[in-house]
Each structure stands twice: as C-alpha cells, then as structure tokens.
Amino acid sequence: MTRDLSKLDRQLINRLQDDLPLVSNPFATIGDDLGLSEQDIVDKVRQLRDDGFLTRFGPFFDAEALGGAFCLCAMSVPEDRFEDVLTKVNAHAEVAHNYERDHRLNMWFVLATESRGDIMRTAKEIEHDTGLEVLLFPKKREFFVGFRVNA
C-alpha cells in the first residue's frame, strides 16, 4: 500500500503543483529542470497518479466562474439522531461533500447547485426533512492561497 517516495518523486510532486505552461510539450520543461527525459516524467506522473499520490492532472477550474453556486452550511445534530439526519441530508444530490466535525455544529456540508436560488431552496428542504436549522455560510471573499503540499 505505502511505498516510500524517492527524492525525485517528491521534487516532481512539488513541481507539479506549479502552474504548467500551455504548450504542446508541457512535461519537457519539467524534465529539463529535473534532469530527466520527457517520457520519464510522463511515466513518473502516471505512476504517482496510479499509486494515489496525485488525484488528478489537468486544468483546475473556478467552479463559480463556470456558473454554479456553492455554499458552506452547518447543522447542530443531536447525537442520537445523527445517522438518521445524515441519511436525509446526503439524500440531496446538491450535497457535494459533508464532514463530521468536533463542535456543537457537528455537520458541515457544501451545497453545489446551478443557481443561488437553488441554494436557499435546498437548505429549506433539508430543514423541512430534518426539522433542524441549517446555517448558511456563503463565501463573502476568497483569499488567494499559495498553498502547496511539501511532499
């Protein structure tokens, strides 16, 4: 299951988090930087993906710029009703992901819909289905993150 990443693998994972140039042979420059052939880079990227170290290689889209609407939501779910409420919440296809967190507000999920109006409608439906209040935390501003995993 686990294999040790070589120094080269780590360099490659770090390098692949940079923005790659939109050119015919995007892996060639990485190969030049790391002292490998273009084909070596392609093979290594595929291996890292197949081994699960990388989830995806390609363009990352700004989902809102494509026209969708998103909203972080939270609920305070009584312990003894948790599984029942979870089933009702997750039944909505608009719930994109959902996390249990260690707080009084213990269920945090993201609604992803075609329009802003659908966010409100879905939240109301979930309140109706569960009898619990859904708090909405729409993003007011997103701050640029320079995050990268240091592999």
């Binding site: 994972i13 692949l16 988090q17 940079d18 923005d19 790659l20 140039p21 939109l22 995007p26 990227v45 890292l48 993906r49 081994d51 699960g52 170290f53 990388l54 989830t55 995806r56 290689f57 390609g58 363009p59 990352f60 889209f61 700004d62 710029a65 494509l66 995993v149 592999a151």
Partner: peptide
C-alpha cells in the same frame, strides 16, 4: 480566471 492553473492535485491523505 475560469482556469486557475494547470497542474496536479496532491492527495493529502496519501502523503
């Protein structure tokens, strides 16, 4: 701004 970048997403958990 529709594409933010071209690259790979590391799997936090796997790392």
């Amino acid at each position: 701004g529709i594409i933010r970048r071209i690259g790979a997403a590391p799997n936090h958990y796997r790392l």
